[in-house]
Simulated assay, not measured.
Amino acid sequence: MIGKEIQPFVAQAFKPTAQGKGEFVEVTDGDVRGNWAVFFFYPADFTFVCPTELEDLAEQYDTLKGMGVEVYSVSTDTHFSHKAWHETSEKIAKIKFPMLGDQNHTIANNFGVLREGQGLADRATFVVDPDGVIQVMEITSEGVGRNATELVRKIKAAQYVRANPGQVCPAKWEEGDDTLAPSLDLVGKI
């Protein structure tokens, strides 16, 4: 999936508003292009690990928006279910990003994370660049929650590499750390 363009989709989403009620909006692949985006797949609303992950991501949302990144959470539930969950869960009420409904499984299939025969998405994260190309992906098993702080670090690295052709970010790279310029001179010296 790395290096592939996202495929066309149209989805209904619940988008929380500053007034707290939220609204239903349509989101398409065209809306994603031109900006950095995170597609944050999770199995289902009203579950166990999922609300902890979404709360963690919600706590990083302002940081991500400041980096020019929009977040789209995606499950195979409907946008109606997302609204009900947002209204009834203290953790989910913190979300400000669009929550896409994928009951037709188009988006989960496009990203290759639909669980065969279950109708649920895997726990998966994709970072998409402004050209609509997947630059980062992570898929974990059902019981392993993700870390939004680490996601922010990975996005910073992807943005750095895009803005600085010929440079790469080594393990544990943090913004401001040294990078590498791959060349014959470095072979065997790292």
Rank of each mutant, 00 (worst) to 15 (best):
I139R: 13
T140E: 04
H82G: 13
V152P: 03
G145N: 14
G176L: 02
G119H: 01
V113I: 09
T125E: 01
D77A: 11
F111W: 08
Y160E: 13
N110S: 05
S89R: 09
G145I: 10
E150S: 13
W85P: 04
V113T: 15
R162G: 01
F97N: 10
M137K: 15
F80V: 15
T78P: 07
T106P: 02
V128P: 04
T149I: 05
W85Q: 03
T78K: 13
V127D: 10
E150C: 05
P165F: 00
K94D: 10
A84E: 11
I92C: 06
Q103Y: 05
I107A: 10
R153Y: 12
E116D: 15
E142K: 02
K172Y: 13
R162D: 04
I155P: 11
D129F: 13
Q167F: 02
Q103W: 14
N109F: 05
G176I: 01
Q167T: 01
E150R: 04
T149F: 14
T78N: 07
V161G: 10
H79P: 01
T106Y: 08
G112Y: 14
T125N: 01
R146Y: 07
M137G: 06
W173H: 00
G112S: 08
P170R: 00
G112A: 07
K154F: 06
A121M: 08
L151V: 05
D129A: 02
Q167R: 07
E174G: 06
F111E: 11
K154Q: 09
H79K: 08
R162K: 13
N147C: 05
D177H: 04
T78Q: 10
I92V: 15
E175Q: 12
A148C: 04
D77Y: 12
Q135S: 04
S141Q: 12
G117V: 00
G101L: 12
R153F: 09
P170N: 00
R123Q: 08
V168D: 03
Q167C: 06
C169Y: 00
M137A: 12
G176W: 07
H105S: 07
A163W: 05
E87A: 15
P170A: 01
L120R: 09
V168K: 06
G132A: 12
T140D: 04
N147A: 11
D122Y: 13
R115S: 13
W85N: 11
P98Q: 01
I92H: 09
D77K: 10
S141E: 10
E116G: 07
T78S: 15
E142I: 14
D122P: 04
A93Q: 14
E87W: 07
A157R: 03
V136Q: 15
G176M: 03
A163V: 01
V128W: 11
Q118V: 02
T106E: 02
K154S: 01
W173T: 00
P98T: 09
H105I: 02
A93L: 02
G112Q: 06
A121S: 14
I134N: 14
T78L: 10
L114V: 09
M99P: 00
R123C: 11
R153W: 11
G112N: 08
V168R: 07
A93E: 13
V136T: 11
I134Y: 09
